[in-house]
Structures are given as structure tokens and as C-alpha cells.
Nucleic acid binder design. Structure first.
Lengths: 352, 352
DNA sequence: TTGTACGCGTTATCAA
DNA sequence: TTGATAACGCGTACAA
């Protein structure tokens, strides 16, 4: 159906067409080294007429660099958070001439291992983990001489990490709610104890968010009520279903003294909360205010969700910067955490 | 921070460690050719102790295959549709030992061109376009001897296409609505005239959907009312905003004889419709029924959206199958269109 | 200012 | 049954 034709010319072919050696062609290509004006012109026309394109495999074999990085993701189709950070690294990589290979482990260590092996075979120059499962897999890379970088969450204290400061935005969210007069504020979020916390050194995302919640309450002189805290999974990694938020909200609505505001630490969770409120015949924000986290689904929900936005693309870029530093052998101290910030939309209002 | 160490061993090193030639190692690796039992054992232990991993670049240089394909996407972060088909090709590719490079053109031909050039340098074995912008870019690949495959929409009649049959699901949607007693059914969708239709041979996605709408009306004896048809963009490719559905719905609600059901041909559009209905203080499905298309945002919306599901992963797999056939030089006739189907959720009910 | 020649790690042919 | 050996296309040290 399509027209197959000539494969791209080689350096050798360009050279002979220009009547020079490959070294000369290489010199004009690189733009360094001495080349006579006349030779340069001849080479340039040969380059143009052959439509020469360097062969990345040959170059990589020679330079021992693939100009390629691997990006291990948790589940790109389940939470839009991942696509957004993936795009961030993609873009940063593109600007520096790198391409990236994606791989999803869906929370399974064996799968992650498989992906790591593929990355090694491809001789990627570094790999980013937007959430690693098993530290051993990072070590596998290190053993193969490939830098491993962690993004968002750390599975090991031995590898650099680009992360976000969850507290800033979460505190802002609480301040917003208490400022609106809410006193019964529920927390619907990920359970810190369910997250694999391989290295006690690291405070996990969940810890930060729940701590900010408690601090926010305290700052407003509201006492902490464990009945208002619902912890669990964010969603199902296997099938992507997100009914957790719905269930949590149903339970919260059944409380004798139900909350007037909900702080859900993931937009997917918040989406379920919104559905439960709707089913109960209540209006948002009139009867109940809801704040989400991430800023992924937020704009598309009904009503548009006030949420704590994560700088997802920037996080990806920060991860790539770390990778680049590691590739070039420079220092790879963890960069300062990126800031989250509250984005106001229409799911929050004065307490009833 | 991380521990860099030995780069992976080469075939040569394995061979000398096993006291054989590289050819023998290659034979046990490939599992074909004669190898004495004794030599095999020696090679195998050497393989294990060195932790040998083939170097994909070296292999690619030799075999003239990269075992890599390119996947050009429109805008992976804007419409979840793209991530889902990307995952489909990724998965199919993985099973056959391929890796895939992604690239987003965001609707811009120059950008697509740039991506194509990168793909050529990487010597990908084929490239999939989940929606090509400029046919010239496909020809560029063909000229470089790289098969180009189209997915979802065709920009040219000269390249194979894996697509979906939009009509089946759309007709089912209309039947569902008319069966529920709806007579005033609005169509909110993409404008066929805004889609670049480079090749008049192809009927575009938009044509199919709107034709199914008209047929569905006709089948139920309902006359077509142009006032109920709202055509435009699906969303903004640059910033991803999706306020179109909201605006369309506002206009529809302002009609003297407003519709009781909406058929929106994209979940993002439907999300906007839902928001407008909510703001008008109406209930879904009590006052108005809404059907979406794609099955991307659907589960997370309020209420969960009845929608025409596209087999996104299967579409991606079909695209990869086409690519594989082209790579192996086999016949690449377009496969039969995949079917769409109506997924019932809670945004549709009896006409008021 | 230019060209020769080697090696990167594989695969594959051919002779032993 | 096995081992030399020649590419694949590029970068670069070195010689001219």
C-alpha cells in the first residue's frame, strides 16, 4: 500500500558523493575542526541531496550512549497524574535530544523487574521511576551502571528524588475551608500504612497530607475527630476503578453529625465523593464543600473542583534534570521540593 | 548518591570466560545450531555469572532493525483516549519484543515533522499515527523506507488504517434514547467541516457519528431539527480546556423548546454538558438525559455517564498488528473496523 | 586542512 | 561441532 523506498544514506555515501572522507563530513556535521570553505560547500550539498540522517544506533554503539532514558510509571491509564509527569520528562528530554521509553508496572514488582531488564538491554542512559515498587530493581540498574532516579515517592534512600511539597497546598486547602467557616472537615485519602514504606527515612506523601490536615484543624482551634478520617486506597491499580471515594462519602454522610466539608487527597477520590453527594440529593457547595488533590480530573467534574494542584510537568522536568546530572556524572543532590498550590473552582463555599 | 558500577558484559567477554568463541555463545543464546552439551553448560554458567545482557544497539546496527516503533499522538494529556490507545500499542509491542517511542504533535504539522525526523534518526521499524496531521510527513517516512500506519483517522488514502466503526455504538445510543421516549434529542459534537479532510475518499469520524444520529432520529420517526445540532471543536489542543460542551448546553437550554436528551460525541464535551445542566439547577437523568462518547471520563463524572465506548486498547493493538505486518513485508490491507458499544450508566432515563 | 583506520557489540557466513 | 572473520554506521585518534 505505502511506497517503500531507499533507506537513508550513510556517512560513507555522503562522503564519496562529496568527494571527501567521512572524517570531513563528520567535521562539518559537528561544526568543529578545520574544513575548507570549498569542502564544506560540497559536503553540504551532498548532505542535502542524499537527505542524510545520522543513524542513532551506530552512533550509540560508538559513543556508548543511547541518548535515551527509561521512564517507569505506575499506571499511566489509571491516574492522569502519570501522563502529565510523563509529558514533563518527555518535553525536557526532547529539548536535550533525548527520547524516552515508557513502561508501566501497575504496582507489581515482577513487572517492574521485566521493564528494568528491557531498559538495560536498550542501554538507556538513565531511568526515572515515577514511583518505584521494589528497591532491588533500582539496584539492578545501578549494577548495570545505569543511574536510577526517583520521582514523587522514594522507595529507597539511596537514589536521588524529585518531589513535591504536599504540605504547602494541603495547608492552604485547610485554611480555605476553615476560613469559609467549616468546622466539621473530613479527610478522605490514601492510607500511609498501606504504602510500602521500605525506608523509614522517608516521609511519604500520605504522611504529609494528613499532617497538614491536622495542623490546619489545630490552627483553627478545631479538635481532631477520628470519625472524620477515611483512609484507604486511591483506586484499583488493576482495573482503574475508583469507587473508593464514593464509599467513603456514603459512610461520612451516614454520620450523625456529618461533615460540611471534605478534603480528598486525590481528584479520583474527590470524583467519587461528588457522586455520593449527588446521589444523596445534596448540592455542592451549598450543602457540602469538597476539595480535591492533583488537579487532574478537576476541571471536568461537576461542579468544577477546587483542588490542590501538583506541578506535574515541572516534577517530570525536575526528574529529567536529575537524570541528566547523573548521566553527566555531576552531583545529584535532591532538588528542593516543588510547591503545590490551591486552585479555586466551584466546589467550595461558605459552611451552611 | 547511587552506586555506579560495572557496565554489562559483552558477548566477547562471556565467550572468553567460557573458553569458547562468540559464535558458540550466540548459538546457545539463539538456541539453534549445534552445540555440544559440555560447551552449552560452560556458556550457560558464564552467561549467568557475568549477568550478560545483549546490547540492543549493537544488534540493531547489525540486523538493521531497531525493534522499536514510533507512535505519533495528537495530545496525550488532553484526551485520555490517546493514553489508552498508546497503552494498547505499548502492550502489543511489548509482547513482540518491541519498545515504542511516543511523540505528541498537538495538532501542529511542523511539530509532527520534527517528531518524524527524530523517529527516522532512531531508525524505528515503523510509525503509528494516532491521527496524522500532514500526509507529507507520512511520505517522508515512506521515503526513508519506514512504514507508516494510521490509527483512528486517515490523513491519506495511501497508508493502512486501523479504525473503529463509530456508527454501531452511535446508533445504539440513539435507539436507547428514543426507546426511553425522548423526542427532542440534541447532538453536540465535532464539526466534520473543521476536520482537515485531505482525502475526500475517507469518511471521517464526525460524518459517521452525525449520520448515525440522523438515522436514529429517522428510525424513530422524529424529524431532524437543525437547532438541536451543535457543532464545534472537542477541546482546545493547546491548553486542553474543554468548555465547549458547557457553552453548547447553555445555548440548548435557552431554546424555547429545549431538548430532553443530549448525545455528545466525546466524554469531554459531555462533561461540559453535565456542568451546564447542574448550573441550571436541573437533575440528570430526571430532567435531561446525556450520552457521551469514548468512555474515558465517563465513570468519574456525576452522575456516571452512559457512553459509547471505544475499544481503545484494541485499536492500539490493531495498529501495532498493521505495523508488524508492514515491517515483515506482509500484506497490509486495512483490518475490519472495530466495534463501539453503548455502556449504560446513570445519566440516561425516561423522558420527563 | 584532510584522510586512514580502528573499534563499539552483534549477527551470520564460511571454512575447518 | 566449532571458530575466524567480515560487516553494520559512526566517531575520533593519529598520521599526513
Amino acid at each position: 500500500m505505502e511506497v517503500r523506498s531507499t533507506k537513508s544514506a550513510t556517512l560513507q555515501e555522503v562522503a564519496s558523493q562529496a568527494g571527501v572522507s567521512t572524517a570531513t563530513v563528520a567535521r562539518v556535521l559537528k561544526g568543529r575542526g578545520y574544513v575548507s570553505a570549498e569542502a564544506r560547500v560540497r559536503v553540504e550539498t551532498a548532505l542535502k541531496s542524499t537527505g542524510y540522517r545520522p543513524n542513532a544506533m551506530a552512533r550509540g554503539l560508538r559513543t556508548q550512549r543511547s541518548d535515551t532514558i527509561g521512564h517507569m510509571l505506575t499506571a499511566i491509564t489509571v491516574n492522569p497524574f502519570f501522563v502529565n509527569v510523563a509529558r514533563g520528562v518527555e518535553e525536557a528530554a526532547f529539548e536535550r535530544g533525548y527520547k524516552t521509553f515508557l513502561f508501566n508496572h501497575n504496582g507489581r514488582a515482577e513487572r517492574e523487574r521485566l521493564g528494568v531488564e528491557r531498559f538495560i538491554e536498550r542501554r538507556v542512559d538513565a531511568v526515572l521511576f515515577t514511583t518505584a515498587v521494589e528497591p532491588e530493581n533500582l539496584r539492578l540498574l545501578a549494577a548495570a551502571g545505569i543511574p536510577a532516579i526517583q520521582v514523587e515517592r522514594a522507595a529507597s534512600a539511596d537514589f536521588p528524588l524529585a518531589r513535591v511539597d504536599n504540605a504547602v497546598g494541603a495547608r492552604e486547602a485547610l485554611r480555605h475551608l476553615t476560613g469559609l467557616g467549616h468546622r466539621r472537615i473530613a479527610f478522605v485519602g490514601g492510607d500511609p500504612d498501606r504504602v510500602a514504606r521500605r525506608d523509614p527515612l522517608y516521609r511519604v506523601v500520605e504522611d504529609e497530607r494528613i499532617a497538614a490536615y491536622r495542623e490546619g484543624l489545630e490552627a483553627a482551634g478545631i479538635s481532631f475527630d477520628p470519625a472524620l478520617v477515611r483512609l484507604g486506597r486511591y483506586y484499583d491499580l488493576a482495573d482503574g476503578s475508583g469507587s473508593e471515594g464514593y464509599r467513603h462519602m456514603q459512610a461520612l454522610l451516614a454520620l450523625p453529625d456529618r461533615p460540611t466539608a471534605i478534603f480528598a487527597t486525590c481528584d479520583i477520590l474527590a470524583a467519587g465523593v461528588l457522586q455520593a453527594v449527588y446521589d444523596a440529593g445534596l448540592r455542592i457547595p451549598h450543602d457540602i464543600s469538597v476539595i480535591g488533590f492533583d488537579d487532574t480530573l478537576a476541571v471536568n467534574l461537576t461542579p468544577p473542583l477546587t483542588t490542590v494542584a501538583q506541578p506535574m510537568a515541572a516534577l517530570g522536568r525536575a526528574g529529567f534534570a536529575l537524570a541528566l546530572a547523573a548521566i553527566e556524572g555531576g552531583p545529584t543532590a535532591d532538588p528542593p521540593p516543588l510547591e503545590t498550590r490551591l486552585v479555586m473552582r466551584r466546589s467550595t463555599g461558605p459552611a451552611p
